[in-house]
Write a protein that binds this DNA or RNA. Structure first.
Length: 446
RNA sequence: CGGAGCGUAGCGCAGUCUGGUAGCGCACCUGCUUCGGGAGCAGGGGGUCGGAGGUUCGAAUCCUCUCGCUCCGACCA
């Protein structure tokens, strides 16, 4: 993409309404535009990152054997009367009447609807296990939306629902989700710690929240500092192997890590003092096992091997997709702007032409752009007729992890500069070497 | 929903107390000079002062109502 033809409305000054760094940078980098309290348009750059995050979520869900579908944003109220949540949910649920005066709602979550789909089409234990998920816009009419996309009223969420024949199988589904979530967050460059949490209005017996540590987080968290060292890495976990999956979960949940809702001071104090940490975190996901809470009230039953009917065992699992944009920026930025992890960056590299209009520089940039595209990468070439400083400032702000700087001075020696946004370290090399190095860097992030 | 603020050009703000016909910086347009970390000079365009009513010879400014947004708190992916 050439910047002169793109739509990237960057702001030099900080918008008055943005209080936290991720919100400020998303506005300044031209990623979002607020349309109402807690409701945003996603401008091209923000939309690109949102899509990359969605893609990673899809890939990891598919890897775990979960099946994508798509449910509507609007739901009939009657479905929620069956589960009893229509009255319980409160003002946070946006209620709407259509022209026939039918009561509708903009879905804050989809347990009822997925249970309705399940009961209509599944009758036998032979069709289990089954996990269905979608990535869809939700609406929760928060009393006080804030922090940009971190606490919007409209937000994009991946929500998945597992259906299993018995508790043991359902717990495996729970564990499978935990591992798939660990992989998902690591691919996004995040350290998200699973913490024992409170079940809240969804209800249930077992639940973990995934927290990204950040000083601006809304939750207070207590943990053993050793948990932050744990990494899933490139381990090839067999998602069908209950013991293997459970072992990973055990590894990640044995050390103390809890939110303030479930914090136990006695257990916490048993940790060696130097490893005892109190910090703040951003919740980027949550998994629940809730058994037959919805299947019993809504009549979602399957026939077992023995021929008896039992309500299906369920759980639900969510990832705050739009919130992740904010969480990633909170966890990865400096005073110049965003620093995208390679896994989610909107463009793989920026090309800065220091002297637009110089024949050699123009040709070298065009050549680099073509070579990167040919290699399957997605570069952003700043071909604007701007001074070097303005181009650097824009690149730093929008946070592309790698920048190739091209100028007449270097070209005389046959070299360009490849600069890491994260470390600031520049290396001089030939254009061909820069392309080769970028290909290598991104091999692990495709 | 309780408490506190703010709405003036695309963005950031001054002007409101003390009423007199709207201003600054950035951005934008034109020209010239610059050009390896947000250039300089000159010229130029753009605003129903959130909206409605009222007071007044006259309202961005005073009064009433209303809408929107932000912050603190309680609630939450």
């Amino acid at each position: 993409m050439r910047l002169s033809r793109y739509f990237l409305p960057v702001l030099k000054e900080n918008p008055a309404e943005a209080q936290i760094v991720s919100h400020r940078y998303m506005l300044r980098a031209g990623m979002i535009k607020q349309q109402a309290a807690g409701i945003y348009s996603w401008l091209p750059l923000g939309f690109k990152v949102l899509r990359r995050i969605e893609q990673i979520v899809h890939e990891e869900q598919t890897r775990a054997g979960h099946i994508p579908l798509l449910m509507p944003t609007l739901q009939p109220a009657d479905l929620w009367r069956e589960s009893g949540r229509y009255d319980d949910y409160g003002q946070e649920m946006l209620r709407i009447k259509d022209r026939q005066d039918r009561e509708m709602l903009y879905g804050p979550t989809n347990e009822e609807m997925i249970t309705d789909i399940f009961r209509a089409h599944v009758n036998s234990y032979k069709d289990l296990p089954l996990t269905l998920y979608h990535i869809q816009w939700k609406f929760r009419d928060e009393m006080r939306p804030r922090f940009g996309v971190m606490r919007g009223r409209e937000f994009l969420m991946k929500d998945g629902y597992n259906f299993d024949v018995d508790r043991e199988a359902a717990l495996h589904s729970y564990n499978r989700h935990m591992v798939s979530y660990l992989r998902t967050y690591e691919r996004m460059g995040l350290t998200a710690i699973p913490m024992r949490a409170d079940s809240g209005p969804i209800g249930g017996d077992d639940t973990h929240e995934f927290l990204v540590l950040a000083s601006t987080g809304e939750s207070e968290v207590f943990f053993d500092s050793a948990v932050t060292e744990l990494r899933l890495g490139n381990r090839d976990v067999d998602y069908d192997n209950r013991e293997a999956v459970a072992a990973v979960c055990k590894e990640f949940t044995t050390l103390y890590a809890r939110t303030d809702e479930t914090h136990d001071a006695a257990l916490f104090d048993a940790i060696p003092e130097e490893r005892r940490k109190v910090a703040r975190g951003i919740e980027v996901g949550q998994i629940f096992y809730f058994g037959t809470k919805y299947s019993a009230s809504m009549g979602a039953e399957v026939v077992t091997k023995e021929g008896t009917k039992v309500p299906v065992e369920m759980g639900s699992h969510g990832i705050g997709v739009s919130r992740l944009l904010g969480a990633i920026i909170e966890a990865s930025h400096d005073d110049k702007g965003i620093i995208w992890p390679e896994g989610v960056t909107p463009f793989h590299a920026g090309i800065v032409n220091l002297k637009q209009g110089d024949a050699a520089a123009d040709a070298a940039c065009a050549g680099l752009e073509a070579a990167l595209i040919k290699a399957g990468l997605d570069p952003l070439y700043d071909d604007r007729d701007e001074r070097a400083g303005a181009k650097f400032a824009t690149m730093d702000l929008i946070g592309l992890p790698w920048r190739i700087t091209v100028g007449p001075r270097g070209l005389e020696k046959g070299i360009v500069e490849l600069t890491s946004r994260r470390t600031g370290v520049s290396e001089e090399m030939t254009p061909e070497a820069a392309v080769a190095k970028l290909i290598t860097i991104y091999e692990g992030h495709k």
